[in-house]
Structures are given as C-alpha cells and as structure tokens.
Nucleic acid binder design. Structure first.
Length: 494
RNA sequence: GGCGCAUUGGUGUAGUCGGUUAACACGCAGCCCUCUCAAGGCUGAGAUCACGGGUUCGAGUCCCGUAUGCGCUACCA
C-alpha cells in the first residue's frame, strides 16, 4: 500500500516554524517510503483565510524545498460533501440532530464551570423520537448535527506512532458537534472526511491534535473508512514554555523571517529536523538525502522542545543553534551551491554588478569564498561584506579608535601606500613582503600596519587574513583607502 | 474543574535487554594558533537524570503517587 501523507495548514497567518517542521516530517516520510505528499489548505474558517496567506504558506514550503505531489486542495471545495457525510451518519444512527440552542448550552456550561464541574453535552436531543424530529424540522427549528458517541464502557484506542498506545473512554467523549446550525461542517468532520477521501494513510500532525484523534476515529468507523495511522509530534515552545505564536513572538516564528534574514533553506530544515527528532547517534548535519534515509518515527521525541531565542538580542536574533547551523552551511557547503544564494542576496540589496558574471566572476567567487568562513547569514555578505564590493562603506568607530589611534600612522599609511603603488604583482605574498619590509624600515611592528590597514581598507577590525584582503580589494583601491584613512587618524587624535 | 501528554546541565538531544566517573552538539569561560575575527585544536564551568515512595544486589532506565509544564476541553482550525 502506498503511503499518503498530507500537510494541512489553515491559512490564518503565516507558515511558522512549527508548521514547517510538521510539513518537513510529512515530506520526509513520503519521500522515504516512496509515497505521496499532499497539500491541503484548511480554509473553512470563513473570514480568517485569505488568498495571500495561502500564497505565503506555499512560498515558505517551496523555499524549504518541500515539494508536494498533490494539491493544494482546498477544504472549502468539499463542504457540501462533508455535510452529506454527516447526514449519512444521522441516517445510520451514528449521529443525530440537536435542537438545543447555543445560548442554552452556553448557559449550562457556565453554570457548570462556575461550580468547577466538568461539562459535557448531556445528550438531550439524542433520545428524540423520529416524530419529534420531523415536527421540529417542519417547524423550522435550527439544529446542529452531533455524533452519537457510544454509551458503554468501551474506549477508542489507537497506537500512536510516536506516543504509543493511546486510549480514551467513551464516557469521556462528548457528543461533539460536526455540523453547525447554518449547515456548515466543522473542522473535526471536514478534516477526517478529507483525509479519508484523499486516501491519507498516515496522519502526521502536532501533538495538539491528540484530543481530536478519538473523535475522528469514531467518524472514520461510522463512515466505514479505514482508520489511518497517527503520528503526533511534540510541540515547539518558547523559552517560557508558551506556545509559539505570531502575536506573542513576532517574526522569529515565521519561516519568512529566516528567508529574509539570510538563512539557507537547507540549514533551517536541518535545524528543524533536530527539533524533536534525532537519528539516535551523534550526527547533526543531514543533506536532504540523508534526512530521508535516516528519518523514522522511532527517532521522534515525546517531549516538547523549546525554541531558544531571546528578544532584543541582535547577535542571537533567533535560536543560537539555528544560527550556528546556518553559519556551518555557509562556510562548509560547496561554493558553487552557495553562490546562487549569495548572488540572489546581492541582487536583492541592489549591489549586483553585471561584471560579477563576466570578467569579474572568478574574483567574485574567490571573494565570497574568502569571506564565508566568518559569516553567519547571507545578509552578512552585503552588510559586513560591503567594503569588499563597494567603495562607500562605514568605518566602525570602535575599529577606528582601536587601530588608527597611533598618530605616526599619519605618515606610515601614505608611506605604505606609496610602496604598494609601485608593486607589479599585487599578490598577497608580495604585499606581505612589502609591508613587513616597510615596517622594519620604519621600526614599527608589522601588526601596527596590518591592523591599521584593516580599518583603512574595510572599516572593520575583524576579517580574513589581511594580505588576502589586500589582494582581494586590489591595488588601486587599497592604495586609495590607505591614503584616505589618514584623516581618520588625525580626527582621532584631535 | 475534566481528559490527555510530557519531565536528562541554559538550549537541542543520546542513553539499546535496569549494571562502573550520565554522552554529544549549541551557548558560555579560558588557553593554543595568529595581523584581527571566525574557523580549528585543547581545557573548563554547568545535571543530586522534577520530587517522593517502591521493586531490585543494583534504576535516568520498571511500578505507584505528587508536583510542575503543556495540549484539548467552542456551532475555531
């Protein structure tokens, strides 16, 4: 039997990390088993769903490389069918019409809650005779359709692929509503019917779906459908152990945020993979192929994991391990696979030049290769990396005060510039030789010139080996920048 | 209140059939390297395995209870 799994987001907001992980796990299982990954948009919530929200979700999935085989299907397309299924259950005695008004039930619930008693619908309309039902129908009384949960000592049980044996007593399950008074079906119904009709064999969803499972199993059985397997995933919580939400946490929980902040989709997927799942050994880096190969339900953890980010910490603008993972990908992945992402980043920031794909393409690639070891996001290439590509860049005050405070640099810098200007071969080795010779001639430590040059050429106090920086930035620009930096020394000492 | 799920260092996780000093990664601190930073190498701090009972020669690992957290408890999805 072919495996069929689905990701069924409701398009209320954006694709968030929890949803993305659920989608990833579904996708992995489909790919591992040669099954199908179905995408279904659960848009039954009237106002809250917008076409734009759907597009954002699709975008996020595409970006993460989670391609679906069928869909997107829209739940609203099947509403009438869902209603019919409920009618079938009424006809077969598995469900009944309930004429109790919402207001009345609300009142009762409140009364019970006030006394801290558990409230479950008492089944008032369950015992209505067919004549009574017909009479009320004829009188035009509004009604909802409720499932008639067996009233016996039995229980609904299933073996969750993650949580193991699960069981819920019939007495603990309320006669839940499946169809509203306006005849629109509820999620609990639509979701189960769609899963059945779309041939879903494995329901892989968040742990918050556990309480729904027994009800849905009841529906499957009442309708004569085969009950699928269930695999519930632990939740992803914030550092105070609250559920992640856009309202509470803002952009950090959204996939789009990572897209914009310069994450590699593979890195995010890899990080998400490890949130709640482990291969059982020490491996942490997984290519898509390796993920597919290694993935299994047994490796899924049962406890909720925490997305470890702190608000207002710019260096750790999200979970430090996610950033670390991204940095690892940036510096370790094959350069030719990284380049397209970097190029996209340059284009997006308006720093792309056509020469980078013609006469300067080799230089561009080498420069990116030089820089990537210490960058953590793609955005770093255009922000921190700016001095390597553009002539106008900022001098970091801390760098200036640290490296350009020695007033003798006022003459040393232009002196070095003069020497370098005469070089025939502006290679890292040649520059190093010149600089070190010049330093000893002047009786200063090479480090003084090296560090000063770093600030002069990049405005920063950190970066690759300085002689590589010289070579990368080039003779003309290097000489210019050394001379230009003199005013900063003066400014500093004044 | 009810029902359910969970509980290993700050975070993510490992810990197979119960058996010596609880492992790995991130983060943090220090050292080495070095022209800086990152990387890399090394070292370190940080966990009475939520708590209390029990079973056992022996429990993070099995059983019971408690606490805490989370989820669900809607004519939301």
């Amino acid at each position: 039997m072919q495996v069929r799994v689905r990701f069924a987001p409701s398009p209320t907001g954006y694709l968030h990390v929890g949803g993305a992980r659920t989608a990833l796990f579904n996708w992995l299982y489909a790919r591992k088993t040669g099954g199908k990954f179905i995408l279904r948009i659960e848009d039954t919530d009237l106002e809250r769903s917008t076409a734009q929200a759907v597009e954002t979700i699709l975008d996020g999935l595409r970006w993460l490389g989670l391609d679906w085989d069928e869909g997107p299907f829209y739940q609203t397309a099947n509403l009438e069918l869902h209603r019919q299924k409920a009618e079938e259950m009424v006809a077969s005695g598995h469900a009944y019409r309930c004429f109790c008004s919402k207001e009345l039930l609300e009142e009762r619930r409140k009364a019970f809650e006030a006394r801290k008693l558990p409230y479950k619908y008492e089944g008032t309309c369950r015992g209505l005779s067919s004549q009574e039902v017909v009479a009320r129908l004829a009188a035009g009384h509004p009604y909802v359709i409720r499932f008639a949960v067996p009233r016996d000592e039995g229980a609904v049980s299933w073996t969750d692929l993650v949580y193991g044996e699960q069981s819920k007593q019939h007495v603990d399950i309320e006669d839940f509503v499946m169809v509203r008074a306006d005849s629109s079906p509820l999620y609990i119904l639509s979701n189960a019917v769609d899963d059945a009709l779309q041939g879903v064999t494995h329901v892989i969803r968040g742990q918050d779906g556990i309480p729904n499972t027994p009800k849905q199993i009841l529906i499957y059985k009442a309708l004569g459908y085969k009950v699928p397997e269930f695999a519930h995933l632990p939740l992803i919580l914030d550092p105070s152990r609250a559920k992640l939400s856009k309202r509470l946490h803002g952009d950090v929980v959204m996939v789009k945020f990572y897209q914009e902040r310069g994450f590699l989709p593979d890195a995010l997927a890899n990080f998400l993979l490890l949130l709640g799942w482990s291969p059982g050994d020490d491996r942490e880096f997984f290519s898509r192929e390796e993920m597919i190969e290694a993935f299994s339900f047994e490796g899924i953890n049962r406890s909720n994991s925490i997305f470890n980010f702190r608000k207002g910490d710019e260096r750790n603008f999200t979970d430090p391990k996610a950033i670390w993972m991204n940095a690892e990908y940036i510096s370790k992945m094959p350069l030719d696979r990284l380049l397209p992402f970097v190029i996209a980043e340059f284009k997006q920031k308006g720093l792309w030049r056509s020469e980078y794909e013609s006469e300067r393409s080799e230089w561009f690639a080498k420069t990116i290769d030089l820089l990537r070891a210490r960058y953590r996001t793609l955005s770093d290439f255009t922000s921190l990396g700016r001095p390597y590509f553009e002539d106008d860049f900022d001098y970091e005050p801390a760098s200036v005060s640290k490296n350009l405070k020695d007033t003798s640099l006022v003459t040393l810098l232009p002196g070095l510039a003069d020497k370098l200007e005469k070089l025939q071969d502006f290679s890292a080795e040649a520059v190093e030789a010149v600089l070190r010779t010049y330093a000893s001639q002047c009786g200063v430590k090479a480090g003084l010139l090296i560090n000063a040059a770093r600030t002069a050429l990049t405005g920063q106090s950190v970066g690759p080996g300085m002689f590589d920086v010289f070579a990368t930035i080039g003779q003309r620009r290097s000489v210019e920048r050394l001379r230009r930096a003199v005013r900063l020394v003066v400014g500093q000492s004044a």
